[in-house]
Amino acid sequence: MAVIEIKNVAKRFGEYQALHDINLTIADQEFMVLLGASGCGKSTLLRIIAGLETATEGEVWIGGKRIDHLPPKDRGIAMVFQNYAVFPHLTVFENIGFGLRMQKLPNDEVTRRVERTAGLMHIDQLLKRYSGELSGGQRQRVAVARALAMEPDVILMDEPLSNLDALLRMEMRAELKGVLAESNTTAIYVTHDQVEAMSMADRISVMHEGRIVQAASPIDVYRDPAERFVAGFIGNPPMNFLDATPQGAGQFLVAGQSFAGPSANKPLEFAIRPEDMTLSETGLTATAKVVEPLGAHLLVTCEVEGKLFRAVLDSDLRVSMGDTLTLAPMQDRIRWFDPDTQIAVK
């Protein structure tokens, strides 16, 4: 059982506050993705869990044991580094077996485990090679195998796929998820790639400026962003926002149209995903500015009341630049945010 509990963790580098009061519980065998833009503190949080960095405040617990004062090797973790950190002076075999050798396991046990994990990662043909003779993808596999060979409770990964090309990344994504699901480890996976996060995660923690703004399943993060930041960050293209004026009785006026909304009687922000709209008789009046046929669908960048507004429409539709469109949002997909607190309003 390796539940990870992060309690009130904060980290300062001198004056700079990299992490603010992080609280997060990760269930046993859960695949948790830390998602956020570059510099938001993902690696710092991961490194605090790994023991490569010390938190300024707070506690880290793994499997019901407080571990933040322990050295990395006593935390039951293994890690996959962004630049792989596959030792260039050791063969693939010795790289995968590095941690086992440090634990002074008997030779036959090292061999057994190295061969098993190399098999899992499909690099059993490469065991005698050196890192310099491997491709980026193969080096990546060695780095994962080295972590798996430790049979850790928790496996930590810091942007493990970010140095691979797009095609390889997609392939490794699926493979990595499969291998990790079978290994019964709890995984924390750092990425700035939301597609990676959505496709791999059991749960995503969206980070922003040293805070976790939402921790939920991928579909919840997508459908019900807890904050305006999440709505504007997740999704490609992200959500559209328009100002909404209250008309009383849970009705709001948005770009000249009336919509049913929360009971709050104050100006809110109306938000809708580009794909949650259809062309219709009544709806928001939009002027098409750029039309991009993307094959599967049509991406139309418009203006609504002078604001940028995108719609993803059926690719059979004929839309040209300058056309006036009437876009009808699906009522149950409309979300509302408080412009003062940036938080979602139900």
């Binding site: 090797k73 293994a78 890690m79 580094f81 962004q82 950190a85 030792f87 590095f98 941690g99 634990q103």
Partner: peptide
Amino acid sequence: PKEYYEAAEVFG
């Protein structure tokens, strides 16, 4: 590279 030392440290 510093990462080699970190990897070595994590792996015990």
